[in-house]
Design a protein around this nucleic acid. Structure first.
Lengths: 342, 342
DNA sequence: CAGGGAATGACAGCGGTAGTCATTTTGTAA
DNA sequence: TTACAAAATGACTACCGCTGTCATTCCCTG
């Protein structure tokens, strides 16, 4: 019924020690032996007992995903990507939802890592952007990978998966520019999230490149919420010189802006184009559906896990600088944008 | 650093076996001993190593949550409740997202259970409503708890946590009736989900109780989607004799209906009241925010896990009929409902 | 004070990893 | 070809933290 390391060893005609060596890809295994063992593993569909490994090994075969994100869809996608990669490598995933704002969050993270003897951690915002967490994890020598907003790999950002919000925002803005819009407003998300700043920078860069002077009045501070979008759009639509397009920092803000516009009897997209960011379900649940930018979250998570495994794996040096994968959310054109009427 | 069973045993002055007995609340432990051990456990904040337990025991200390639900918020809430309860009992949670419609889903479920040696399973719709899955699990003698839509406990529904959609719908409908509405339409969800049928039944019962003949034209078949709500409301608003209120089977449908109404220049809630069901984020992301029914999903999940643990626990007989917890989603009045103008 | 059930403990073993040597295989230079 | 070192592999042991089995001790009852 259950396949153990002994079965594999017997079938391959080697000792369990060798099978163990193969499983932990230790260097000193001959190619021929490795093939035999690999074949036996495949034939028996052997999967090492994670409990036994965790118990016996000084190192662990469980990674953790600690999160605090109001966007459940994001979390679910992340989990999916992590889970798939874990399964592929014979790891287990420990999920730990928590409150990033609690006073002793750093201690809590450390407790989770130590109690569950985690091999490593995948961190998403806001945790990935908290330097005190990174420091604490380094202090207890636990590997971790951060998923953060950023466009340019750098040695400082080692062990990071980058989301290039800048370029994505640049592209979205170009989409609006190509539709003939020049009076484009920007509804910001929370200042604390670096994603908001990155997106704003990309937006401004696109304008500048076309020789358009960004109107500072069109940049409205706010937060990642529906309400904020409602308020921001109301503010913009009350102006004498109105924008013809709005770049909302995420889909919720965009949905709020959409509502505000509708209340003011502004036709979307005929009189006003609106774009969001994230491709959250909200973006499909509005009317018209939102033009937005799509992040392949599962893939990003899978990459992050791969990066982590390459580190936790015994062969690789801890300090080796990895190349950093960079993901660029893609433009997704739907019905909330149209050529500028003016 | 790490607290093991040995530390507890030493502090309590007993053998590790006795500590083990306490941890698994086996019956034959003297009160005095139990207290000593319990105190030691508390003092050291001992938490048993799940890996070691899984390895040593014939039974397992991991339960599974297999899901396929488009509503990420629901899944996240469920996970939260399960996780908390697992932690409390020293169990681990294995999450397994999958596709309920895949051809060999039954085999997949069994594989997961057997490969990860799960102690039990928590099933939510659609899995909890698939008889072939229940049968298969019974055949391999794995405990499971189902969370299903239903109002009356019965011996057949042993090991179930019931969501009383009927009563909740009854209450929501009463809310509308109390506001003076009598021409109330009902937008159905997918037929395959028993929740839709239960909610419709509750709706009709409330009308009948007030001596109101439900207008069959006002019951519109559909599915749990925004589009369905848009279409359903459009259909209703095109009628010569329009309803003054709409009961949407969930928040997405309600959001769609809201949009449809707005397009037809129908004021909400002045001219038309709309209620949803679920208290999903959508219900707060619309304008006006939706009156809806709230399900305490985390609590429900926690209860389901408790029920499961009571079964998997050695002391209890497998066949013992448990009382079935029944949850009634609560009415949550927001701004999408108002007194009938007519 | 014996008998017997209740309470407790000693010990092996779950399925792996890791370390130590011993042994076999291999590659290579004389 | 032979010799010999280096590389690859195996045999064996200890152990991770806990549970199952069974033997032992305790304590109550008649």
């Amino acid at each position: 019924m259950k396949v153990t390391i002994n079965d594999v060893a017997e079938l391959a005609g080697v000792s369990i020690k060798t099978v163990s060596r193969v499983m932990n890809n230790e260097p000193s295994v001959k190619k021929a032996t490795l093939d035999k063992v690999t074949a036996a593993i495949a034939q028996l569909n052997y999967q090492p007992n994670a409990a036994a490994r965790n118990l016996a090994s000084t190192r662990s075969y469980t990674i953790g995903y600690i999160y605090d994100n109001p966007n459940a869809y994001y979390v679910i996608d992340m989990q999916k990507g992590l889970l798939d990669t874990c399964r592929k490598h014979g790891y287990e995933l420990l999920i730990h939802p928590t409150n990033a704002k609690s006073a002793n969050i750093v201690q809590e993270v450390i407790d989770v890592v130590q109690h569950s003897r985690l091999a490593g951690l995948v961190l998403t915002p806001p945790f990935s952007e908290m330097p005190e967490i990174a420091e604490a994890l380094e202090r207890i020598e636990v590997d971790f990978v951060r998923i953060i907003s950023g466009s340019t790999p750098s040695p400082k950002l080692t062990n990071c998966v980058l989301i290039d919000d800048f370029t994505a925002a640049f592209k979205i803005t170009n989409h609006l520019l190509e539709l003939g819009h020049t009076d484009i407003a920007f509804l910001c998300g929370d200042e604390e999230h670096s994603s908001s700043g990155e997106r704003l920078a990309g937006f401004q860069a696109a304008l500048t490149k076309r020789g358009i002077q960004a109107n500072p009045k069109f940049v409205v501070p706010g937060s990642y919420s529906f309400e904020s979008g409602v308020k921001g759009a109301k503010h913009l639509l009350a102006m004498a010189h109105k924008p013809t397009a709005i770049f909302a920092c995420n889909d919720e803000i965009a949905a709020g802006a959409l509502f505000s516009a509708r209340l003011s009897h502004v036709e979307i997209p005929e009189q006003l184009s609106i774009v969001g960011f994230e491709n959250s379900p909200f973006s499909r649940q509005t009317w018209p559906p939102l033009t937005t930018a799509n992040q392949p979250n599962s893939t990003i998570a899978a990459q992050a896990a791969e990066l982590l495994f390459r580190h936790t794996r015994p062969g690789s040096a801890r300090s080796a600088v990895e190349q950093q994968p960079v993901f660029i959310p893609e433009l997704l054109v739907r019905e909330s944008t149209a050529p500028c009427a003016r």
